[in-house]
Computed example of a mutant assay.
Amino acid sequence: MAEADEAIDWLLGLDPSLQWQVMRDLLDAPPLAWRPIRAKIETEGWGARLLSHQDEDGQWAGGAFSPKDFDWSEWKIVGQPWTATSYALTQLRDFGLDPASESARRTVDLVGRNARWEEGEQPFWQGEVEECINGRTLADGAYFGADVTSIAERLLEGTQPDGGWNCERCEGSVRSSFASTINVLEGLLEYETVMGGSEAIRAARGRGEAFLLERGLFRRLATGEAADPAFLTPLYPHRWRYDILRALDYFRAASQRFGTPPDARLAEAIDILRSKRDERGMWLLEWQTPGRVWFHMDHGPGSPSPWITFKALRVLRWWDLHAVSN
């Protein structure tokens, strides 16, 4: 489609962190073509810019989850801050910073030695108590080569009776949440991809996937209504938040990793995602999370979102390639 070509050309003219993934995932370029582009993340564009804000001790903003000496009243007035170590690492993973790069190896070592969670002063790579945080930390650690086995084991123990996870489990919740579940699923998938996984991890992922699929990725099981209208609006950076694009991209990744076909229960979410494409073949950023950031990678709500567009194109390409079996 001409619209897809226009969108791909636009993405290829942006940052190296997008260029290499577009080449790999949308154009089927061989590694020899995209590896030199990926290597630029460390020294050019958004990746280099984020690394430039890193503290000497390996952290960002002096904290694991929140900036050092953060005034928590700011959260209510301005919004949650996104500048500390946890969110920086997740962003670098999304960029595709090579785990073997000097910056990545140095960061894993320094974060392991210096970062402590504000909740209980645990070493960073041992994780926190909330499933959302632990899911992302598991994904980041597995991707960058840290030892996060203890986090994986803890997440397996924290599965809810309905199959997913909830950050409020430590406060007595026995029901899963969409956001907690997608954070943990992404973490388990990355850990399984890198470490080889286990029967227990595969079973847990299966239960978590069923939790989302039984709800069509966005509906309440009891009423069939949308659990949250925001779930239907793709967001990037998604931070800890859930939406259908994030879930669809997870199912794409799992399908391609294990050679399984897409589940037919994803079809409604696919149709909603497709309907949000504009006449140029792009997806707009419809809203943005408030709070401190190091920098933005778009021009704000109402403008085309590079990352949403890329991820949506990647999901639809995967889905359409398997259309016969849907």
Results as ranks from 00 to 15, higher is better:
Gln54Asn: 07
Glu192Ile: 03
Leu27Pro: 12
Asn166Lys: 01
Leu185Thr: 11
Ala146Phe: 05
Arg136Ala: 12
Gly196Gln: 07
Gly45Ala: 06
Ile133Phe: 07
Gln91Asp: 11
Leu185Cys: 10
Gly112Ser: 11
Gly127Leu: 05
Gly197Tyr: 04
Leu110Arg: 13
Tyr143Ile: 02
Pro301Ala: 10
Leu11Ile: 14
Gly47Cys: 11
Glu56Cys: 10
Asp94Gly: 14
Ile37Tyr: 02
Ile270Trp: 02
Val315Tyr: 01
Arg239Glu: 13
Trp60Gly: 07
Ala64Phe: 01
Pro67Gln: 08
Trp165Val: 11
Arg136Pro: 00
Gly172Thr: 12
Gly206Asn: 10
Glu153Val: 14
Gly208Met: 10
Gly196Ala: 09
Gln59Asp: 03
Met195Asn: 15
Trp60Glu: 11
Arg265Lys: 10
Ala312Pro: 01
Leu245Met: 05
Ala33Thr: 14
Asp94Glu: 14
Arg106Tyr: 05
Glu56Asp: 15
Phe251Gln: 01
Pro304Trp: 00
Ala267Tyr: 05
Trp46Met: 08
Glu74Gly: 01
Gln288Tyr: 06
Trp82Gln: 06
Gln160Arg: 06
Arg38Tyr: 06
Leu110Phe: 06
Pro301Val: 13
Pro36Asn: 11
Gly216Val: 06
Phe310Ala: 07
Val22Trp: 01
Ala152Asp: 02
Leu156Cys: 09
Pro16Phe: 04
Leu138Glu: 02
Leu212Thr: 02
Ala254Tyr: 07
Cys170Trp: 09
Trp307Arg: 07
Ala264Gln: 04
Gly206Ile: 11
Phe144Asn: 06
Val78Trp: 06
Val111Trp: 01
Ala203Val: 12
Cys132Gln: 02
Leu273Met: 09
Asp57Met: 08
Glu192Asn: 12
Leu11Asp: 04
Asp98Gln: 02
Phe231Thr: 08
Gln59Val: 07
Val108Gln: 00
Ala29Gln: 09
Arg252Asn: 03
Phe95Tyr: 15
Asp278Lys: 03
Leu92Thr: 08
Leu26Asn: 07
